[in-house]
Design a protein around this nucleic acid. Sequence first.
DNA 1: TGAAATGATTTGAA
DNA 2: TTCAAATCATTTCA
Length: 458
Amino acid sequence: MDEQARIMQALGGVSLAGHSVQGGMALPPPHGHDGTDDGRKQDIGDILHQIMTITDQSLDEAQAKKHGLNCHRMKPALFSVLCEIKEKTGLSIRGAQEEDPPDPQLMRLDNMLLAEGVSGPEKGGGSAAAAAAAAASGGASDNSIEHSDYRAKLTQIRQIYHTELEKYEQACNEFTTHVMNLLREQSRTRPISPKEIERMVGIIHRKFSSIQMQLKQSTCEAVMILRSRFLDARRKRRNFSKQATEILNEYFYSHLSNPYPSEEAKEELAKKCSITVSQVSNWFGNKRIRYKKNIGKFQEEANLYAAKTAVTAAHAVAAAVQNSQTNSPTTPSSGFQMKDEEFQLDSAESKNTLLTNMFTGSSGSFNLSNSGDMFLSMQSLNGDSYQGAQVGANVQSQVDTLRHVISQTAGYSEGLGGNTMYSPHSLNTNGGWQDATTPSSVISPNEGPRSVHSDTSN
DNA sequence: TGAAATGATTTGAA
DNA sequence: TTCAAATCATTTCA
């Protein structure tokens, strides 16, 4: 209504006296008056008042008055005056018509919504973020749950955002159309240029886009909260699956001398356990520290995994022996030679039993004490015995040695790379694993010959 | 419900 | 960058 006030003010300065107005326009003498200046002023004032208040009236009332005004004999002259005034006041309007530069904050919000998959084409919205969230939160089955959960919530946000956006756009369009119609209608009684209508539309759109920005801002906040909830691993920590823990423990205890898996080994373990490489690193970091801190506590676990490892190894060995038997029909003896002793094994089962007993330390175990070169004494930690490490390392070394012997007698050499002697590295007196940077070349009995390890030295 | 277990993070050193 | 060590935060279990 500022413009209206301006016009009113401008008209107030228009001199209608002497049949002339500012700008040299001449008005015909008003009909039905006595021809005095006061009478004319009164007449024009009435018309102007009617024009100005036309928007305050009801539609029917306004329609009726509008018709009356349009037919008024002074209308063309008054319209010309208004046009002239408009032309002058238009100068001040032109300055405000400059195009606004794009709002940087709005651009940021738009980019973020696009990156999160909230705005833009739907392509599994925010799948990267969901994957990251899932990766950070643990196991494979859990991953899918987390993933779908995240996606479901993101889709929900997306839907709300689009619904609201649509509503805003619809409201904006409706309001714009309404205002445009109104202005077009009013243009019959007062001078309104198309540019002015355009400007008005621009104002309306700016108002609505500021509302949209609020919507975008709150949507971004919602996405941020969702992301932080899913990505904050501490908040949603899941224990690894039993199987994954077993795989990691097996590796740890079978590489007890040097429990530092290489990147490749980590990747392989991560794949096997359906966790991330960094989770494998974390696990080994925690395990090393906790093991070292409380070896006694972990001894039982170490024994368990050592036995397990040994059993697996024994099965592998037995299979290899059996293979050698079938592959070498000319071999006179079905036994295999270890050092100076020869074992006659009647069946695969008895071989397994014997080998298992050997490794698990059950009664009747095969004493390899004569093979002194096979074992290196385990360094004690601060003078205490380092049994946990010993169990695993001994078993590992037994397995390796056995493999070596068998490789010589039964052709079981593939993949071992001649690495038969095991030099166990253990916790040194400083409490660290010896030779951590130059790991030993130990191959887990459970792994194939092609398995990759960090252990590279002999 | 509290303690233990466990996965993740932070910090400082090499 | 990687690791050890300390610590945090959550889950699991008795």
